[in-house]
Design a binder for these strands. Structure first.
Length: 449
DNA sequence: TTTTGAGTTGTTCGA
DNA sequence: GTCGAACAACTCAAA
Protein backbone atom coordinates (compact mmCIF):
# COMPACT_ATOMS: atom_id res chain seq x y z
CA UNK A 1 0.00 0.00 0.00
CA UNK A 2 1.62 3.15 -1.21
CA UNK A 3 0.21 6.17 0.68
CA UNK A 4 0.40 9.54 -1.03
CA UNK A 5 -2.24 12.21 -0.44
CA UNK A 6 -4.36 9.79 1.55
CA UNK A 7 -2.43 9.63 4.81
CA UNK A 8 -5.08 7.83 6.84
CA UNK A 9 -6.37 4.34 7.54
CA UNK A 10 -9.98 5.27 8.11
CA UNK A 11 -12.25 5.56 5.07
CA UNK A 12 -9.40 4.83 2.73
CA UNK A 13 -10.64 2.60 -0.10
CA UNK A 14 -7.16 1.68 -1.31
CA UNK A 15 -6.09 0.68 2.19
CA UNK A 16 -9.30 -1.23 2.70
CA UNK A 17 -8.67 -3.19 -0.46
CA UNK A 18 -4.98 -3.72 0.21
CA UNK A 19 -5.64 -5.20 3.65
CA UNK A 20 -7.75 -7.95 2.17
CA UNK A 21 -4.44 -9.61 1.31
CA UNK A 22 -2.61 -11.91 3.75
CA UNK A 23 0.11 -9.36 4.29
CA UNK A 24 0.45 -5.77 3.27
CA UNK A 25 3.33 -3.38 3.62
CA UNK A 26 2.40 0.28 4.14
CA UNK A 27 4.82 2.60 2.36
CA UNK A 28 5.40 6.32 2.07
CA UNK A 29 7.89 7.83 -0.34
CA UNK A 30 9.24 11.21 0.70
CA UNK A 31 10.17 13.18 -2.40
CA UNK A 32 12.98 15.64 -1.74
CA UNK A 33 12.08 17.66 -4.80
CA UNK A 34 8.57 18.26 -3.50
CA UNK A 35 9.65 18.93 0.06
CA UNK A 36 12.19 21.48 -1.14
CA UNK A 37 9.57 23.25 -3.21
CA UNK A 38 7.20 23.49 -0.27
CA UNK A 39 7.19 26.41 2.11
CA UNK A 40 8.08 25.67 5.73
CA UNK A 41 4.47 25.39 6.84
CA UNK A 42 3.47 22.81 4.27
CA UNK A 43 6.65 20.89 4.84
CA UNK A 44 5.91 20.75 8.55
CA UNK A 45 2.31 19.82 8.01
CA UNK A 46 3.23 17.03 5.62
CA UNK A 47 5.81 15.53 7.94
CA UNK A 48 3.33 15.79 10.82
CA UNK A 49 0.86 13.80 8.78
CA UNK A 50 3.43 11.12 7.99
CA UNK A 51 4.30 10.86 11.67
CA UNK A 52 0.61 10.57 12.49
CA UNK A 53 0.17 7.78 9.98
CA UNK A 54 3.17 5.97 11.39
CA UNK A 55 1.84 6.36 14.93
CA UNK A 56 -1.56 5.06 13.89
CA UNK A 57 -0.01 2.02 12.26
CA UNK A 58 2.19 1.39 15.28
CA UNK A 59 -0.82 1.61 17.55
CA UNK A 60 -2.25 -1.18 15.42
CA UNK A 61 0.86 -3.30 15.83
CA UNK A 62 2.25 -2.49 12.42
CA UNK A 63 4.70 0.07 11.06
CA UNK A 64 5.28 2.35 8.12
CA UNK A 65 8.06 1.94 5.60
CA UNK A 66 9.49 5.35 4.78
CA UNK A 67 11.52 5.58 1.63
CA UNK A 68 13.55 8.23 -0.14
CA UNK A 69 12.31 9.34 -3.53
CA UNK A 70 12.06 9.27 -6.41
CA UNK A 71 9.14 6.88 -6.31
CA UNK A 72 9.98 5.61 -9.78
CA UNK A 73 13.02 3.96 -8.21
CA UNK A 74 11.87 3.36 -4.64
CA UNK A 75 8.58 1.61 -5.34
CA UNK A 76 9.85 -0.87 -7.95
CA UNK A 77 12.76 -1.70 -5.66
CA UNK A 78 10.57 -2.57 -2.69
CA UNK A 79 7.50 -3.85 -4.53
CA UNK A 80 8.95 -5.74 -7.47
CA UNK A 81 7.65 -9.01 -6.03
CA UNK A 82 4.42 -7.72 -4.54
CA UNK A 83 1.23 -9.31 -5.83
CA UNK A 84 -0.33 -5.90 -6.15
CA UNK A 85 0.46 -2.26 -5.46
CA UNK A 86 -2.44 -0.27 -4.03
CA UNK A 87 -2.88 3.47 -4.37
CA UNK A 88 -5.50 6.15 -4.41
CA UNK A 89 -5.27 7.60 -7.86
CA UNK A 90 -3.51 10.89 -8.55
CA UNK A 91 -5.31 13.76 -10.25
CA UNK A 92 -2.43 15.88 -11.54
CA UNK A 93 -0.37 15.14 -14.62
CA UNK A 94 2.90 14.90 -12.68
CA UNK A 95 1.56 12.25 -10.34
CA UNK A 96 -0.14 10.36 -13.12
CA UNK A 97 3.04 10.24 -15.17
CA UNK A 98 4.97 9.06 -12.11
CA UNK A 99 2.42 6.32 -11.52
CA UNK A 100 2.60 5.23 -15.14
CA UNK A 101 6.38 5.00 -14.86
CA UNK A 102 6.17 2.99 -11.66
CA UNK A 103 3.64 0.72 -13.26
CA UNK A 104 5.88 0.20 -16.28
CA UNK A 105 8.86 -0.55 -14.05
CA UNK A 106 7.02 -3.28 -12.14
CA UNK A 107 5.32 -4.51 -15.30
CA UNK A 108 1.85 -4.49 -13.78
CA UNK A 109 -0.93 -1.97 -13.37
CA UNK A 110 -1.33 -0.21 -10.02
CA UNK A 111 -4.51 -1.20 -8.23
CA UNK A 112 -6.18 2.15 -7.77
CA UNK A 113 -9.14 3.75 -6.04
CA UNK A 114 -10.40 7.32 -5.79
CA UNK A 115 -10.10 7.90 -2.07
CA UNK A 116 -9.12 11.55 -2.36
CA UNK A 117 -12.47 12.63 -3.83
CA UNK A 118 -16.14 12.25 -2.99
CA UNK A 119 -17.29 11.41 -6.50
CA UNK A 120 -15.24 9.31 -8.85
CA UNK A 121 -14.31 11.05 -12.07
CA UNK A 122 -16.74 10.09 -14.80
CA UNK A 123 -19.69 9.59 -12.45
CA UNK A 124 -21.01 13.17 -12.41
CA UNK A 125 -22.02 14.00 -15.97
CA UNK A 126 -24.46 16.11 -17.93
CA UNK A 127 -27.38 14.62 -19.81
CA UNK A 128 -25.10 14.24 -22.78
CA UNK A 129 -22.58 12.26 -20.80
CA UNK A 130 -19.96 15.00 -20.61
CA UNK A 131 -18.32 16.77 -17.68
CA UNK A 132 -20.10 20.09 -17.21
CA UNK A 133 -18.13 23.26 -17.87
CA UNK A 134 -20.53 25.12 -15.59
CA UNK A 135 -20.36 24.53 -11.87
CA UNK A 136 -24.05 24.77 -11.08
CA UNK A 137 -24.94 22.08 -13.59
CA UNK A 138 -22.22 19.88 -12.10
CA UNK A 139 -23.50 20.58 -8.60
CA UNK A 140 -27.10 19.64 -9.40
CA UNK A 141 -25.97 16.20 -10.51
CA UNK A 142 -23.28 15.83 -7.85
CA UNK A 143 -25.60 16.50 -4.93
CA UNK A 144 -28.15 13.88 -5.96
CA UNK A 145 -25.57 11.23 -6.91
CA UNK A 146 -25.18 8.81 -4.02
CA UNK A 147 -21.50 8.73 -3.05
CA UNK A 148 -19.78 5.36 -3.14
CA UNK A 149 -20.25 3.39 0.09
CA UNK A 150 -17.71 3.89 2.85
CA UNK A 151 -15.06 1.19 2.61
CA UNK A 152 -14.60 -1.44 5.26
CA UNK A 153 -11.96 -0.71 7.84
CA UNK A 154 -8.69 -2.46 7.02
CA UNK A 155 -7.63 -5.31 9.25
CA UNK A 156 -4.64 -4.39 11.36
CA UNK A 157 -3.51 -7.96 11.83
CA UNK A 158 -2.40 -8.32 8.29
CA UNK A 159 0.08 -5.50 8.10
CA UNK A 160 3.83 -5.41 8.25
CA UNK A 161 6.04 -2.50 7.22
CA UNK A 162 8.93 -0.75 8.87
CA UNK A 163 11.55 -1.58 6.27
CA UNK A 164 13.55 1.32 4.98
CA UNK A 165 14.92 2.16 8.43
CA UNK A 166 17.98 4.26 7.91
CA UNK A 167 16.63 6.04 4.87
CA UNK A 168 17.16 9.76 4.91
CA UNK A 169 13.43 10.21 4.81
CA UNK A 170 12.93 8.05 7.90
CA UNK A 171 15.55 10.13 9.71
CA UNK A 172 13.74 13.28 8.68
CA UNK A 173 10.44 11.99 9.99
CA UNK A 174 12.10 10.88 13.21
CA UNK A 175 13.65 14.32 13.75
CA UNK A 176 10.26 15.77 13.16
CA UNK A 177 8.72 13.59 15.80
CA UNK A 178 10.95 15.15 18.40
CA UNK A 179 10.26 18.67 17.27
CA UNK A 180 6.59 18.64 16.70
CA UNK A 181 4.10 19.82 19.25
CA UNK A 182 0.79 18.14 19.82
CA UNK A 183 -1.26 18.00 16.66
CA UNK A 184 -4.98 18.34 16.84
CA UNK A 185 -6.30 15.49 14.80
CA UNK A 186 -8.32 16.11 11.70
CA UNK A 187 -11.30 14.51 13.37
CA UNK A 188 -11.13 16.96 16.25
CA UNK A 189 -11.22 19.77 13.71
CA UNK A 190 -14.18 18.22 11.98
CA UNK A 191 -16.01 17.73 15.27
CA UNK A 192 -15.49 21.33 16.32
CA UNK A 193 -16.46 22.50 12.85
CA UNK A 194 -19.92 21.06 13.48
CA UNK A 195 -20.40 23.77 16.09
CA UNK A 196 -19.85 26.46 13.46
CA UNK A 197 -21.05 25.06 10.16
CA UNK A 198 -24.62 26.27 10.55
CA UNK A 199 -23.30 29.81 10.57
CA UNK A 200 -21.15 29.23 7.50
CA UNK A 201 -23.45 31.26 5.27
CA UNK A 202 -23.05 34.34 7.45
CA UNK A 203 -19.48 33.92 8.62
CA UNK A 204 -17.62 32.42 5.68
CA UNK A 205 -16.70 35.76 4.13
CA UNK A 206 -15.50 37.44 7.30
CA UNK A 207 -11.75 36.94 7.54
CA UNK A 208 -11.61 38.26 11.10
CA UNK A 209 -13.94 35.47 12.21
CA UNK A 210 -13.06 31.82 12.59
CA UNK A 211 -15.91 30.96 10.27
CA UNK A 212 -14.37 28.36 7.96
CA UNK A 213 -13.63 24.72 8.59
CA UNK A 214 -9.81 24.84 8.54
CA UNK A 215 -9.98 21.41 6.96
CA UNK A 216 -8.29 22.31 3.70
CA UNK A 217 -4.87 20.96 4.64
CA UNK A 218 -6.38 17.79 6.06
CA UNK A 219 -8.26 17.23 2.84
CA UNK A 220 -5.14 17.92 0.83
CA UNK A 221 -2.99 15.47 2.77
CA UNK A 222 -5.78 12.99 3.13
CA UNK A 223 -5.67 12.90 6.91
CA UNK A 224 -9.44 13.03 6.59
CA UNK A 225 -11.54 11.93 3.65
CA UNK A 226 -13.94 14.27 1.86
CA UNK A 227 -16.38 11.38 1.77
CA UNK A 228 -16.39 11.30 5.57
CA UNK A 229 -16.72 15.06 5.83
CA UNK A 230 -19.77 14.94 3.57
CA UNK A 231 -21.35 12.20 5.67
CA UNK A 232 -20.79 13.96 8.95
CA UNK A 233 -21.90 17.42 7.79
CA UNK A 234 -24.79 16.69 5.42
CA UNK A 235 -26.86 19.35 3.69
CA UNK A 236 -29.68 19.86 6.16
CA UNK A 237 -29.20 23.61 6.69
CA UNK A 238 -28.15 26.47 4.42
CA UNK A 239 -24.78 26.61 6.15
CA UNK A 240 -24.16 22.91 5.68
CA UNK A 241 -25.36 23.00 2.11
CA UNK A 242 -23.05 25.88 1.33
CA UNK A 243 -20.11 24.12 2.90
CA UNK A 244 -20.78 20.81 1.14
CA UNK A 245 -21.01 22.75 -2.09
CA UNK A 246 -17.32 23.53 -1.58
CA UNK A 247 -16.59 19.80 -1.58
CA UNK A 248 -18.34 19.63 -4.94
CA UNK A 249 -16.14 22.45 -6.26
CA UNK A 250 -13.16 20.44 -5.11
CA UNK A 251 -14.35 17.38 -7.02
CA UNK A 252 -15.23 19.48 -10.05
CA UNK A 253 -11.77 21.02 -10.39
CA UNK A 254 -10.18 17.59 -9.95
CA UNK A 255 -12.41 16.11 -12.63
CA UNK A 256 -11.67 19.03 -14.92
CA UNK A 257 -7.93 18.64 -14.47
CA UNK A 258 -8.12 15.00 -15.44
CA UNK A 259 -9.75 16.08 -18.67
CA UNK A 260 -7.61 19.15 -19.21
CA UNK A 261 -4.10 18.72 -17.82
CA UNK A 262 -3.10 21.91 -19.63
CA UNK A 263 -5.28 24.01 -17.32
CA UNK A 264 -2.34 24.13 -14.91
CA UNK A 265 -0.29 26.20 -17.33
CA UNK A 266 -2.60 27.81 -19.84
CA UNK A 267 -6.02 29.44 -19.96
CA UNK A 268 -8.97 27.08 -20.09
CA UNK A 269 -10.41 29.53 -22.60
CA UNK A 270 -7.48 29.76 -24.95
CA UNK A 271 -8.27 33.25 -26.26
CA UNK A 272 -7.26 34.63 -22.87
CA UNK A 273 -3.72 33.42 -23.31
CA UNK A 274 -3.42 36.40 -25.66
CA UNK A 275 -3.70 38.89 -22.79
CA UNK A 276 -0.61 41.06 -22.71
CA UNK A 277 0.41 40.79 -19.08
CA UNK A 278 2.74 43.38 -17.64
CA UNK A 279 6.30 42.43 -16.85
CA UNK A 280 6.48 44.05 -13.43
CA UNK A 281 8.92 42.31 -11.07
CA UNK A 282 8.66 45.10 -8.51
CA UNK A 283 4.88 44.95 -8.45
CA UNK A 284 5.03 41.19 -8.07
CA UNK A 285 7.51 41.50 -5.24
CA UNK A 286 5.39 44.11 -3.45
CA UNK A 287 2.40 41.81 -3.75
CA UNK A 288 4.31 38.79 -2.44
CA UNK A 289 5.68 40.65 0.54
CA UNK A 290 2.45 42.41 1.47
CA UNK A 291 3.62 45.92 0.57
CA UNK A 292 1.09 47.04 -2.03
CA UNK A 293 -0.35 49.86 0.04
CA UNK A 294 -3.81 48.25 -0.03
CA UNK A 295 -4.28 47.10 3.58
CA UNK A 296 -6.61 44.16 2.95
CA UNK A 297 -4.30 42.84 0.23
CA UNK A 298 -1.22 43.24 2.37
CA UNK A 299 -2.94 41.60 5.34
CA UNK A 300 -3.77 38.54 3.28
CA UNK A 301 -0.34 38.21 1.73
CA UNK A 302 1.30 38.48 5.13
CA UNK A 303 -1.05 35.91 6.62
CA UNK A 304 -0.07 33.58 3.79
CA UNK A 305 3.68 34.10 4.24
CA UNK A 306 3.55 33.83 8.02
CA UNK A 307 1.14 30.93 8.42
CA UNK A 308 0.87 29.10 5.09
CA UNK A 309 -2.85 29.74 5.01
CA UNK A 310 -5.10 32.57 3.88
CA UNK A 311 -8.80 33.11 4.36
CA UNK A 312 -10.83 32.24 1.27
CA UNK A 313 -12.38 35.68 0.80
CA UNK A 314 -8.94 37.25 1.04
CA UNK A 315 -7.50 34.76 -1.43
CA UNK A 316 -9.99 36.13 -3.94
CA UNK A 317 -9.19 39.73 -3.09
CA UNK A 318 -5.41 39.30 -3.27
CA UNK A 319 -5.59 37.20 -6.43
CA UNK A 320 -7.89 39.67 -8.09
CA UNK A 321 -5.52 42.47 -7.13
CA UNK A 322 -2.54 40.78 -8.77
CA UNK A 323 -4.41 40.01 -11.97
CA UNK A 324 -6.84 42.88 -12.37
CA UNK A 325 -5.03 45.74 -10.62
CA UNK A 326 -1.41 44.92 -11.38
CA UNK A 327 -2.22 43.12 -14.65
CA UNK A 328 0.31 40.44 -13.77
CA UNK A 329 -0.06 36.94 -15.24
CA UNK A 330 -2.22 34.73 -13.00
CA UNK A 331 0.31 31.94 -13.37
CA UNK A 332 2.87 33.87 -11.32
CA UNK A 333 0.36 34.27 -8.52
CA UNK A 334 -0.67 30.65 -8.80
CA UNK A 335 2.94 29.59 -8.39
CA UNK A 336 3.41 31.78 -5.31
CA UNK A 337 0.27 30.45 -3.64
CA UNK A 338 1.22 26.90 -4.53
CA UNK A 339 4.65 27.26 -2.95
CA UNK A 340 3.30 28.57 0.36
CA UNK A 341 -0.18 27.24 1.01
CA UNK A 342 -0.42 24.29 3.38
CA UNK A 343 -3.41 23.12 1.35
CA UNK A 344 -1.80 23.75 -2.04
CA UNK A 345 -3.15 21.42 -4.65
CA UNK A 346 -2.62 22.05 -8.35
CA UNK A 347 -6.15 21.39 -9.57
CA UNK A 348 -7.73 23.60 -6.91
CA UNK A 349 -5.13 26.31 -7.08
CA UNK A 350 -5.09 26.63 -10.86
CA UNK A 351 -8.86 26.26 -11.12
CA UNK A 352 -9.51 28.99 -8.62
CA UNK A 353 -6.86 31.30 -10.04
CA UNK A 354 -8.41 30.90 -13.46
CA UNK A 355 -11.77 31.64 -11.93
CA UNK A 356 -10.46 34.89 -10.49
CA UNK A 357 -8.61 35.78 -13.68
CA UNK A 358 -11.74 35.08 -15.71
CA UNK A 359 -9.79 32.76 -17.99
CA UNK A 360 -11.55 29.63 -16.82
CA UNK A 361 -14.78 27.75 -17.17
CA UNK A 362 -16.91 30.08 -15.13
CA UNK A 363 -19.49 32.53 -16.35
CA UNK A 364 -18.27 35.57 -14.47
CA UNK A 365 -18.32 38.61 -16.69
CA UNK A 366 -14.86 39.94 -17.04
CA UNK A 367 -15.85 43.38 -15.86
CA UNK A 368 -16.60 41.89 -12.48
CA UNK A 369 -13.46 43.27 -10.95
CA UNK A 370 -13.08 43.33 -7.21
CA UNK A 371 -12.59 46.74 -5.67
CA UNK A 372 -10.13 46.03 -2.85
CA UNK A 373 -11.43 48.90 -0.75
CA UNK A 374 -15.11 48.00 -1.13
CA UNK A 375 -14.31 44.39 -0.36
CA UNK A 376 -12.36 45.44 2.70
CA UNK A 377 -15.14 47.67 4.03
CA UNK A 378 -17.76 45.04 3.37
CA UNK A 379 -16.05 41.98 4.78
CA UNK A 380 -13.71 43.41 7.41
CA UNK A 381 -15.79 46.40 8.49
CA UNK A 382 -14.07 46.94 11.81
CA UNK A 383 -10.60 46.37 10.36
CA UNK A 384 -9.91 43.59 12.84
CA UNK A 385 -8.29 41.35 10.25
CA UNK A 386 -6.19 44.18 8.87
CA UNK A 387 -4.95 45.19 12.32
CA UNK A 388 -3.95 41.62 13.03
CA UNK A 389 -1.65 41.37 10.01
CA UNK A 390 -0.75 45.00 9.30
CA UNK A 391 -0.02 46.28 12.79
CA UNK A 392 1.56 49.51 11.56
CA UNK A 393 -1.98 50.66 10.68
CA UNK A 394 -3.63 49.49 13.87
CA UNK A 395 -4.12 52.95 15.35
CA UNK A 396 -6.19 54.15 12.38
CA UNK A 397 -9.94 54.48 12.89
CA UNK A 398 -12.21 51.80 11.49
CA UNK A 399 -13.39 54.05 8.69
CA UNK A 400 -9.84 55.01 7.70
CA UNK A 401 -7.98 51.73 7.85
CA UNK A 402 -9.22 50.41 4.51
CA UNK A 403 -7.75 53.25 2.45
CA UNK A 404 -5.10 55.19 4.36
CA UNK A 405 -4.26 57.35 1.34
CA UNK A 406 -7.73 58.91 1.65
CA UNK A 407 -7.28 59.62 5.33
CA UNK A 408 -6.91 63.19 6.55
CA UNK A 409 -3.25 64.06 7.23
CA UNK A 410 -3.98 64.87 10.84
CA UNK A 411 -5.61 61.49 11.42
CA UNK A 412 -2.69 59.75 9.73
CA UNK A 413 -0.23 61.62 11.90
CA UNK A 414 -2.02 60.87 15.14
CA UNK A 415 -2.07 57.17 14.18
CA UNK A 416 1.67 57.30 13.57
CA UNK A 417 1.28 56.47 9.89
CA UNK A 418 3.57 58.07 7.32
CA UNK A 419 2.62 56.94 3.86
CA UNK A 420 5.64 55.93 1.84
CA UNK A 421 7.57 55.45 5.07
CA UNK A 422 5.86 53.43 7.79
CA UNK A 423 3.42 52.02 5.24
CA UNK A 424 3.53 52.09 1.43
CA UNK A 425 1.54 54.48 -0.68
CA UNK A 426 -0.84 52.54 -2.94
CA UNK A 427 0.98 50.82 -5.78
CA UNK A 428 -1.72 51.65 -8.31
CA UNK A 429 -4.89 53.67 -8.52
CA UNK A 430 -7.68 51.14 -8.59
CA UNK A 431 -9.99 53.04 -10.96
CA UNK A 432 -7.37 53.50 -13.65
CA UNK A 433 -5.99 50.00 -13.14
CA UNK A 434 -9.50 48.65 -13.63
CA UNK A 435 -9.86 50.53 -16.91
CA UNK A 436 -6.45 49.32 -18.07
CA UNK A 437 -7.40 45.71 -17.37
CA UNK A 438 -10.73 45.94 -19.16
CA UNK A 439 -8.87 47.22 -22.21
CA UNK A 440 -6.23 44.49 -22.04
CA UNK A 441 -8.91 41.79 -21.80
CA UNK A 442 -10.94 43.33 -24.61
CA UNK A 443 -7.84 43.45 -26.82
CA UNK A 444 -7.17 39.77 -26.18
CA UNK A 445 -10.69 38.74 -27.06
CA UNK A 446 -10.97 41.04 -30.09
CA UNK A 447 -7.45 41.37 -31.43
CA UNK A 448 -8.59 43.68 -34.25
CA UNK A 449 -9.56 46.55 -31.97
C1' DT B 1 -32.11 21.54 -34.50
C1' DT B 2 -33.43 25.54 -32.25
C1' DT B 3 -34.48 28.07 -28.45
C1' DT B 4 -34.21 29.45 -23.88
C1' DG B 5 -32.40 30.35 -19.54
C1' DA B 6 -28.75 30.83 -16.65
C1' DG B 7 -24.17 31.62 -15.15
C1' DT B 8 -20.20 31.29 -6.72
C1' DT B 9 -18.29 35.05 -4.49
C1' DG B 10 -19.15 42.44 -8.12
C1' DT B 11 -19.28 47.53 -8.96
C1' DT B 12 -21.28 51.68 -10.16
C1' DC B 13 -24.58 54.92 -11.22
C1' DG B 14 -28.74 57.21 -10.99
C1' DA B 15 -33.39 57.46 -9.34
C1' DG C 1 -29.02 55.65 2.39
C1' DT C 2 -31.34 52.19 -0.48
C1' DC C 3 -32.51 49.91 -4.47
C1' DG C 4 -32.54 48.27 -9.08
C1' DA C 5 -30.60 48.24 -13.42
C1' DA C 6 -26.73 48.25 -16.42
C1' DC C 7 -22.46 46.47 -17.32
C1' DA C 8 -21.04 42.56 -23.44
C1' DA C 9 -21.65 39.18 -25.35
C1' DC C 10 -21.02 34.37 -24.99
C1' DT C 11 -21.03 29.64 -23.68
C1' DC C 12 -23.06 25.90 -21.84
C1' DA C 13 -26.78 22.77 -20.57
C1' DA C 14 -31.23 21.47 -21.01
C1' DA C 15 -35.82 21.88 -22.75
Amino acid sequence: MWFRHDLRLEDNPAWSRATQADTVEPVVVVEDTLLDAAGPHRRTRYLDAVVDLQDTLRANGADLTILDGPAQIAIPRIAANADSIHVNEAVGPWGRRRDAEVSAAVAKPLTSEWGTLVAEPGTVLTGKGTLSRVFTAFWKVWVRTPPPPLPEAGSAEAVSGGAGIGSRAAELVEQHRRQRSTIASAHDRLASWLDHVDRYDDDRDRPAIDGTSQLSADLRLGTISPRRVLDVVGTSTPGRDGFVRQLAWRDWYAHLLLEMPHMLSSAIRPEYDAIEWLDDPEGLEAWKSGQTGYPIVDAGMRQLAQTGWMHNRVRMITASFLVKDLLIDWRLGERWFRSLLIDAEPSQNAGNWQWVAGTGTDAAPYFRIFNPVSQSRRFDPSGTYIRRWVPELSALADRDIHAPWETAPLDLASAGVILGDTYPAPLVDHASARARTLEAYARAVKPST
